[in-house]
Design a protein around this nucleic acid. Structure first.
Lengths: 242, 242
DNA sequence: CCGTAAACTTTACGGGTGTCAACTTGGCAT
DNA sequence: ATGCCAAGTTGACACCCGTAAAGTTTACGG
């Protein structure tokens, strides 16, 4: 993953023809390897096999390149999460199913963070320099920087899950607004602690337990509707599939 | 806070007398301003008013200096949290009190993160280089790097709160082991999202709501004991004091 | 066929970093 | 008083970065 097939390096003609995308992909690869700090103009140009200054035909500055990399990173993350989500079986009690989908979304989030820590950090750790001050100046065309950057897409996915929980009566409608914060925080925090933080070297068994435990807490803590009978079994672990 | 009184700069004699600590404090200040990436040998030396190479009399390498800064950062964080925790009134229902203390711990955590983002990130975002390979070589004495680094102290504080929740019957004893993960993740995640992530520019009102919401979820999600009657009011907001 | 303009290169400036080797300073014990 | 040695210094090497100015290549439209 994030080893783009078109090698990004090597080029036949003097005019590359697709330098912007090539650089953006290279930047994403750098991010995958070394996190956002590894995304540099020189580095990306080096990987593509082009001169550093060539990048300035397509990006206003390093921050602009980083933004492009972040876009690709975000795309990759939502793809991975969506793929993971699709494995939840569609049968059984609607409440259980909605809960399972919520949990699976969270699992996908954390799982992606562990598999692609650099990408994950690039997505969510944003000390972004200001965007070149005079944007739209002529240099640095910023068309198609990748969808879903303004509102991080995982957030939207979470929103859908919560809507489902309202639909099946697990979450009271009046509790729906602003309900994203808690689950997102829990899942994001665990991912951070495991990827970059004090829990980095946690043994795998403990790690899986911590994940399930956190998801348990989230499901239970969310319950406010009539369908949220206490003691409802937290549904099968789905085998931490994927 | 983290503006150490002894200015760290300026020095009378050729021999500084306390260079190690001075450098460590300077490093912590750099971390407060610019996060862990801002902790550099040259930077710290510059602030103390000393030559970069002088630092090598006291630190094996940059990673070693960072570790020292992290120690101080952690100390500052636990101090702030402890101070914040002390404001919880000691009266009323034991369960409510234990819950209030748990929430206040979480609030302190997030509040500190927002007030000292650089320090916070330095505490918990650890891409630490390996510690100089040949440790204990003679150069770089590492005595008194500050307590509570191995096991991050906020984690221990959280543990105490959970113990209290068991004591008052809100949390079942058999659920106590491993119960730290969820609450820590939730609080840590929200802090990260607010400090460094997509929620950075959230208006204050929404931010406070998100915090309370997340703490609600945590308390509710934790409840497994007989004393955890549903619908127990989440106790007064404590005025988000401090 | 050819000129224009976009895409890319060369060259270079100015700044940052970690870290090593060798020298100097000066406090402190003899 | 003196000399040792730890604690500082100077100076330098080797790398990294962003990016600006000016020159070269090449695609493409007239």
């Amino acid at each position: 993953m994030f080893r783009v097939n078109s090698p990004a390096t090597a080029r036949s003609s003097y005019h590359h023809g697709d330098l912007r995308n090539a650089l953006a992909r290279a930047a994403a690869e750098l991010a995958a390897t070394g996190g956002p700090d590894a995304v540099t103009i020189r580095g990306a140009a080096r990987e593509v096999g082009v001169t550093p200054t060539a990048a300035y035909r397509h990006f206003a500055n390093q921050g602009d390149l980083l933004e492009a990399a972040r876009g690709l990173a975000m795309d990759g993350m939502v793809a991975a999460m969506a793929d993971f989500l699709q494995r939840v079986p569609a049968d059984g009690d609607p409440v259980a199913r909605a809960l399972a989908r919520l949990r699976s979304t969270g699992r996908g989030y954390i799982r992606f963070a562990l598999q692609e820590p650099g990408i994950f950090r690039t997505c969510f750790t944003g000390r972004l320099r200001e965007p070149a001050a005079g944007a739209g100046d002529g240099a640095g065309d910023r068309a198609g920087a990748g969808p879903g950057m303004g509102d991080p897409a995982p957030y939207l996915l979470l929103g859908e899950m919560l809507d489902e929980l309202v639909a099946v009566g697990y979450l009271a409608p009046e509790d729906r607004p602003g309900a994203e914060a808690g689950p997102w925080a829990a899942v994001h925090g665990l991912a951070m602690l495991l990827v970059d933080g004090p829990l980095k070297d946690m043994p795998e068994a403990d790690r899986e337990a911590a994940i399930e435990r956190t998801l348990d807490m989230t499901s239970r803590g969310l319950a406010t509707g009539p369908a949220s009978v206490q003691g409802r079994s937290p549904e099968g672990p789905l085998g931490s599939a994927g």
